[in-house]
Simulated scan of single mutants.
Amino acid sequence: MNLVQLIGEPWDEYGLVDSGGGRKLERYGDYRFIRPEPQAMWAPASEDWDAHGEFVPGSDEEGGGRWRFDKPTPEGGWPLAWDDVRFTAQTTPFRHLGFFPDMAPVWSWMREQVADLDAPSCMNLFGYTGVGTCAMAARGAEMVHVDASKKSVEAARANAALSGLEDAPVRWLVDDAVKFTAREVRRGRRYDGILLDPPKYGRGPGKEVWQLEQGLPGLIADCRKLLDQDSRFLFLTVYAVRMSALAIGELVRQAFADLGGTVEAGELGVREEARGLALPTAIFARWSR
């Protein structure tokens, strides 16, 4: 199993401007924001951070906190773009801004895996606001987008509309990702690729409880059953847990041992503009044909 890094580079409408002292300064189009970042243990390049707002974390380990704004910021969000995909950025109660910029190299990688297929069939589990779904649909993929949050799926559909993908072949599903995947296995379905970004903890629309450490092995096993010798990829990201890339890489390696192909694991990160250093953000494991 190979250990690799996927580092997101800045683009016109997003960049990690500076980081350090447990915080990071990012630009989202015309707006700049400061957010907590425990992994930025080094000193920042500059002490003078000019931002529109900052997320002030709560005192407990489980999160919480609030945004403090120093300059006017659109309450309803504002449009951004990555490549040929448009979407809305917006400050959320969960400290992020409606998408995960470190996923940009993942979106590019998934496109590469199916570039030679006509209308590949792919699934985005825990799909959130759908930027990954739109990235694939914009290149002709037939997508199944699953998230337990009705609000997130509505935001994903709105992002698809911004990208001119209202009529793209996307199934938008408000459903429990684990239960839906199990049903797809029973139906005998197959996919060319699967992206999954499970949370540490969550609840489905029927109050189903999800805990990553307990639920992930079974979910990966079911995802394997939806992929076959002609499938191209599975990409798993894991955020905010005390877990190793080696651990999830071994989980995927064992599940996909009979399919051959390549299993890699490692870290996602974002390139800082000030000094070019890489800020780690998450761990991942992936299988590809």
Rank of each mutant, 00 (worst) to 15 (best):
A43I: 05
A43Q: 15
A43V: 04
P44N: 04
P44D: 00
S46T: 15
E47I: 07
E47P: 00
D48Y: 10
D48E: 14
D48M: 07
D48R: 14
W49N: 09
D50N: 15
D50Y: 08
D50F: 06
H52R: 03
G53Y: 01
G53L: 04
G53I: 03
E54Y: 06
F55M: 05
F55D: 05
F55K: 05
V56H: 03
S59M: 10
S59E: 14
D60R: 15
D60T: 15
D60N: 11
E61L: 09
E61H: 09
E61A: 15
E61V: 09
E62Q: 12
E62Y: 10
E62H: 11
E62P: 01
E62S: 14
G64Q: 07
G64R: 08
R66D: 03
R66S: 12
R66P: 01
R66Q: 07
W67D: 13
W67G: 09
W67F: 09
R68M: 08
F69I: 06
F69S: 10
D70H: 13
D70E: 14
K71P: 06
K71N: 09
K71M: 12
P72R: 07
P74Q: 04
P74R: 07
E75P: 03
E75V: 11
G76W: 02
G77S: 03
G77D: 02
G77K: 02
G77T: 02
W78H: 13
W78E: 00
W78V: 03
P79C: 06
L80T: 00
L80P: 01
L80K: 02
A81F: 06
W82V: 06
D83R: 15
D83H: 13
D84F: 07
V85M: 08
V85L: 12
V85H: 00
F87A: 03
F87I: 06
F87T: 02
T88C: 11
T88A: 07
T88P: 01
A89N: 05
A89W: 01
T91N: 07
T92Q: 11
P93V: 13
P93I: 08
P93N: 09
F94W: 10
F94V: 12
R95Q: 14
H96E: 14
H96L: 08
L97P: 00
G98C: 11
G98D: 13
G98T: 11
F99N: 01
P101Q: 09
P101W: 03
D102H: 11
A104M: 00
V106R: 04
W107I: 02
W107L: 03
S108L: 12
S108E: 15
W109N: 08
M110Y: 01
M110H: 04
M110C: 15
R111P: 02
E112K: 13
E112V: 06
E112P: 01
Q113F: 02
Q113D: 01
D116F: 07
L117S: 04
L117D: 09
L117F: 11
L117E: 11
D118A: 14
D118G: 06
D118L: 07
D118P: 08
A119L: 11
P120A: 07
S121A: 12
C122W: 05
C122K: 05
M123R: 11
N124T: 12
N124L: 05
N124V: 15
L125T: 14
L125F: 06
F126R: 06
G127P: 12
Y128L: 04
Y128N: 00
T129F: 04
G130T: 08
G130I: 01
V131H: 08
G132C: 05
G132Q: 04
T133I: 06
C134E: 01
C134F: 00
A135E: 10
